[in-house]
Design a binder for these strands. Structure first.
Lengths: 350, 350
DNA sequence: GTGAAAGCGCTAACAT
DNA sequence: ATGTTAGCGCTTTCAC
């Protein structure tokens, strides 16, 4: 039937497919990359040849000429060192937050054949490694989630001229695209709810002050409460962990035993606060109403279930990915920021 | 001072460094790859040139000739579709389990300059995508975590002759390396503890039956209890989620109101069980003792804190990575399985 | 010990 | 509409 061709050894290449199909490499390349200007019948022949050879394009070779890798870095950057000696990599996913962000990014990228490379950047050395990785052309750009404000990575990335999109506005003004939530609006929703419930002595467990989002949630809450005639709001600083929420609530209760409402800057801390309240024999929400932030899995894993400010993380992460691809596609794509609105999810705790 | 060289445009290449250093590309390549047979002074000169040019090797070009990418795929494979329409990507990280595995793998890989590419494989199409990705040479191998037993991916990978290591023994015998825990031993630890506490009417909330680990934890528990003179152990099947644990406990209580001890196949379900018990007014551990599995963050996020069977996930993930690199390094590396021992972590719930 | 030269597999001008 | 050709940036024999 067919002409006898020398058997292929190793992975088939474009050349092999071309030989089997009886056309040139260029033509095969064209049908693979879906470029028109290829006669239908030839197209068919080539497809056949691809199938019989089991050809798969070599990523490195393609990458070398296109200068694109088809992958992006998903970088989690931060200080680490909070959770008693536990390595940063382990801490990161302790908050359901990161998983949702990763999931949201993947949901957008995967249909486009792009996969994220997971990287952590908690030390100067790790940051250099990330920059080097990007500069090598190992990834086309970066999705960057910083866990604290003074992260130098955004600046380093801008200086290196690499495409990137941040989760959350950078602490210091940096010409880089980002996606964020209106944290102040979220805090306001919490304040509204607490006041509407009739709470008169509310307090707050904030996130770490070196995180901009923490500041915004705190000041947004304080301002809203001030507008309701409560100029002074007792507060303690947590670090977004369950334990810090529990400890914070204990402190709050010790100093202000008459508290009847609490706004915690994330669900994990709110969950911790619930534990402390129970220990003190306070009923939630009747004695003390509690509102969290994020609408993470923690919100429904405790009793009473948390009323919380929802942050549409998956959508936000998807938007980050969308912006990043735009930047990669067009180097002149304008620096953009997209701010999402929060929503109050009412459950049992307030 | 130095001879004036034409200015470099774009990223510097080996060629540029060679020109600046006044040597050949080959020599620069040698010092970069740490190959000896380069005179110390030349070495110095080259290093200098690398520094002044800001040279970074191009990954694609290197990859093309070495046939190595320096990255591995971290694939989470499973059925999905449990959690009410939520996309698989989002479900995955809902269990703290995956975050710890990812963290453990990164801890091992990162110092070696290798970064994992995150992939999900919950549908036939997604599986093909993973295989294709690997066959393209986009990653040197795969770390594979399956969420259910009948996952066809291990077989597909073996057929494609790709280096890979599994989390947990594959359901059907497959010539592929894996790392696992002695689930039976873990279940035994739980049984021992429950019996030692004086529990006489124990029950269990198992994981999904199509997961081998669930079967082993269940049968290991049953066998151990049988040895203690309890041949029949009431049980319900959960799916490793918080909610299924809660629902399971309600069912158990309805059918066996006199239960005084429960072994749940993971911490999330144990946490859910705690909620159900509280709702029924049962004190833990006095009325009912509860033991979980995994020693995840959920174990300390509830009250009473969970006594649980610890699975050294980070170590196990690290070992997976170690085995994978061995397979990549040496294609003849023997298929290996490593079984880790569990440990009982005693807290308050039992 | 160092350099010259030959590719790795692919895409993209440029011809035809 | 298809083929020819010239690289992309690197490693690696093979000479010297």
């Amino acid at each position: 039937m067919s002409t006898d061709l020398p058997p292929l050894q190793g992975t088939p290449t474009l050349e092999d497919v071309a030989r089997v199909a009886g056309v040139s490499r260029a033509t095969v390349s064209r049908v693979i990359n879906g470029i028109r200007n290829v006669a239908p019948d030839i197209q068919e022949t080539v497809q056949q040849a691809i199938a019989t050879t089991g050809y798969v394009p070599n990523r490195a070779a393609r990458s070398l000429v296109t200068r694109r890798t088809g992958s992006v870095a998903l970088v989690v950057s931060g200080a680490g060192g909070d959770a008693g000696g536990e390595p940063f990599e382990s801490q990161v996913f302790a908050d359901p937050f990161f998983g949702r962000v990763a999931g949201g990014a993947v949901a957008f990228l995967r249909p486009r054949g792009i996969h994220p490379v997971l990287m952590f950047a908690e030390t100067a050395h790790a940051r250099d490694q990330v920059i080097g990785y990007l500069r090598q052309g190992s990834a086309d750009g970066a999705l960057l989630v910083s866990t604290h404000g003074e992260d130098p990575l955004p600046r380093l990335i801008v200086e290196a001229g690499l495409p990137a999109v941040l989760w959350a506005r950078p602490a210091r003004p940096t010409p880089i695209s980002y996606v964020d939530l209106s944290h102040r609006a979220g805090a306001e929703l919490a304040a509204d709810r607490l006041v509407a419930r009739g709470c008169r002595r509310v307090a707050t467990i904030s996130g770490p002050f070196d995180v901009r989002a923490s500041q915004d949630r705190l000041s947004g809450f304080q301002d809203a409460m001030a507008r309701y005639g409560h100029p002074y709001i007792p507060g303690v600083e947590g670090n977004f962990t369950h334990d810090s929420g529990e400890a914070g609530m204990h402190r709050l209760l010790a100093e202000h035993p008459d508290i009847d409402g609490v706004f915690a800057a994330n669900d994990l801390m709110a969950q911790g606060a619930l534990l402390a309240l129970r220990e003190h024999g306070r009923a939630v929400p009747d004695d003390v109403a509690v509102i969290g932030f994020d609408d993470s899995s923690a919100a429904t894993a405790c009793r009473p279930q948390l009323t919380t400010v929802r942050q549409p993380m998956e959508d936000m992460a998807g938007e980050m990915a969308r912006l990043l691809l735009a930047h990669i596609e067009d180097p002149d794509f304008q620096v953009t920021s997209v701010i999402f609105p929060p929503a109050l999810v009412v459950r049992q705790s307030a």
